[in-house]
Design a binder for these strands. Sequence first.
DNA 1: ACAAAATCAGACCATATGGTTCAGGTGCGC
DNA 2: GCGCACCTGAACCATATGGTCTGATTTTGT
Lengths: 205, 205
Amino acid sequence: MDVAEGKIKRGRKFDQVLEGAREIFMRDGFEGASVDDIARAAGVSKATLYSYFPDKRLLFMEVATGQCQRQAEECIQSIDPNGPPREVLRKAAERMMRFYLSDFGQAVFRIVVAETARFPGLGREFWEDGPARSREVLIAYFREATARGTLRVEDPGLAADQFTELCKVDLHPRMLMGLGVEAGPAERARVAEGAVEMFLARYGT
Amino acid sequence: MDVAEGKIKRGRKFDQVLEGAREIFMRDGFEGASVDDIARAAGVSKATLYSYFPDKRLLFMEVATGQCQRQAEECIQSIDPNGPPREVLRKAAERMMRFYLSDFGQAVFRIVVAETARFPGLGREFWEDGPARSREVLIAYFREATARGTLRVEDPGLAADQFTELCKVDLHPRMLMGLGVEAGPAERARVAEGAVEMFLARYGT
DNA sequence: ACAAAATCAGACCATATGGTTCAGGTGCGC
DNA sequence: GCGCACCTGAACCATATGGTCTGATTTTGT
């Protein structure tokens, strides 16, 4: 019944532990999470937990970096390099918003921002696994499109950052602050359209 | 000059306590800060501290909301309603960046994002004291300018949010993540110019 | 079936922390 | 100088937490 997933370290409860830790850490942050809570949530004894991970920090790093990588999957978008800008951008905006506004995306973001002082390197991990990658994808597309004449982008790096930031408009900061914001399809569409419109006004041909 | 100010502040060490708490909370967050550390940093005995504040949470709230209000001062910009868009926006961008990229601004932001779950209302406080206000200022200006024909903004709220977000481009997220970013005058200028340029391309006349 | 490996529940330990208390200082108005 | 409110320093308490250990129980490979 157990799927031979591949590089299972040792013991069956390993993934279980990680899953519990994920849940609690994402909910309570590093300091806020207690090891007992984690063990309970994982349905595992503390002894077992400590048989896998030497201490809390390591456990946390494992979870956090894991989430960062998992984030990568959600964030990487294969852009059709031949598509017309308006459509490509629209899709890219939706992808980005889907991540940044999801519970998961918010939790990761929150954790990284909060714990980056206690865990140097966490921020970089997150950055390079996620934002940096989609940034590269965007840059490549902007170069391509500029060469083909469907866009006119002088500074692709800046343009990519701007577009990314435009996708966060309104919804993202307000959700982070715990304001009661429902980011329904209508709200998302408004922001996405706003982003595309603005971007094309600046860099369109 | 001392008695006139707001609330009942009995005792001389009151401000000292607040100052120490500010320092430690801003550095370590809520959970990370220990009351002993705070007392030490404030140059005050724990007994004195607890004679002013019934518990740690209250102390934190006092500090946090205080910071939020202090933030308001830094963020509120009296925009010249008659100025030409390019100049007004440029100045606004600089103001915003000066806040968001300062140690102070980052610390407040980090605290709010991190502790907003533990302290509901903190986020709202921050929001309404700062971002919401400058948002209103921007909106008013956009309305004015649109009426006068120097801008063409259909959705002033969206435009204000977009402009705000454009001011965060690149520097803000990367600093939050603890990537080693120096936001010198050159980098700021690049972002500010980029923001203004993009905004005018979309909403200029 | 048997032994080794893994896991369990929970007692246990050391420490840190929030918070209290109290016997004395310290400063200040009178 | 006197009185009094404020402040101090440290001892103290209760609790929670990270982490260890043990002896019993279950899983697993063979």
